[in-house]
Design a protein around this nucleic acid. Structure first.
Length: 177
DNA sequence: AAAAGCTGCAACCGCGTACGT
DNA sequence: TACGTACGCGGTTGCAGCTTT
């Protein structure tokens, strides 16, 4: 996509930059994070000399600049996983993203809102019995996986709650640096 | 060819929670 | 314990580009 127009800046916060990030801003932010690490976002914002709030810097880093980010081309397997996780977790995008390496919560949320929610609505409209059955099967499958998670064995998705909240795994490796 | 409508997605906002003092 | 600040998350907005009419 092309460069977006700057959004109007309210006079109250005119000292804060808003709207699309420029490549210079990206570079500055990445440089500062490389030195100081991805923490204390307000400090990072000021050290980078960016007229951005820490929140905005964090978002930019997490969704765009972070290393190992996959963008676009969500595979069928990933889509299936998102659907299954969403059935289980609801709109817990960050948790869902945590099970999809390289994907961000924002990307998954957007993908859900623009693609998957429509797909589901269409299917519901069609009222396809087979589809319903498979959804029910999926739900049952998930239920079983969830209840058996403690001793779960060879399911490709484990919904062990502890695992969901295990922040020591590889996805946070970059953060610990 | 141009206008209108639609889609995808980056970014912002508000709220709840964690953490430091 | 109470308060202030920062962080993280989910919901929402709004614009660029694409498609349809």
């Amino acid at each position: 996509m092309g460069v977006k127009k700057e959004r109007p800046v309210s006079p109250k916060r005119s000292q804060i930059n808003k709207g699309a990030w420029t490549s210079e801003e990206d570079t500055k932010l990445a440089e500062v994070i490389a030195v100081h690490g991805a923490k204390s976002w307000n400090t990072i914002a000021s050290k980078a000399g960016l007229k951005r709030c820490g929140k905005s810097c964090r978002l930019r880093w997490m969704n765009y600049l972070r290393p190992n980010i996959k963008r676009g081309n969500i595979s069928e397997q990933e889509e299936d996983l998102i659907l299954r996780l969403h059935k289980l977790l609801g709109n817990r995008w960050s948790l869902i993203a945590g099970r999809l390496p390289g994907r961000t919560d924002n990307e998954i949320k957007n993908y859900w809102n623009s693609h998957l929610s429509k797909k589901i609505k269409q299917k519901e409209k069609q009222g396809c019995k087979d589809e319903k059955r498979s959804v029910e099967n999926g739900k049952e499958e998930l239920r079983q996986e969830n209840t058996c998670a403690a001793g779960g064995e060879d399911s490709n998705i484990s919904f062990d709650v502890d695992e969901f909240f295990d922040f020591s795994d590889e996805k946070f490796e970059w953060m610990n640096r």
